[in-house]
């Protein structure tokens, strides 16, 4: 799957989970930039991403996700 398609599908998930209709994903986007992105909604987003791409994260993967770019890279590597 191409990176653009991953970003497109992630954008839909982010908009739904964080309840932000116009949210645009950037590599350097972090929880500090989205008001409703906290430790509670974070895990809901993770579950949605796993279901969407049919992948399973490890706890160590979660610790490496400092910004959206990291999430995209990890999803990309899981799909290869």
């Amino acid at each position: 799957m191409k990176r653009e398609e991953i970003v497109e599908r992630l954008t839909l998930i982010f908009r739904k989970v964080f309840n932000e209709k116009d949210l645009v994903l950037r590599d350097d986007l972090t929880a500090n930039d989205v008001e409703t992105w906290d430790s509670l909604t974070h895990m809901l987003m993770i579950t949605e991403v796993e279901n969407e791409f049919q992948i399973k994260f490890k706890l160590k993967d979660l610790n490496k996700m400092k910004q959206v770019g990291d999430l995209i890279s990890i999803v990309e590597s899981k799909l290869q």
Binding site: S39, L40, M43, L44, I46, T47, E50, F57, L59, L62
Partner: peptide, 17 residues
């Protein structure tokens, strides 16, 4: 505590949280 626990229980969605 919270992140590992909610990660393990994420299959329960909101109830896991």
């Amino acid at each position: 505590i919270y992140t590992p626990l909610s990660f393990i229980l994420r299959g329960w969605k909101i109830w896991g949280i």
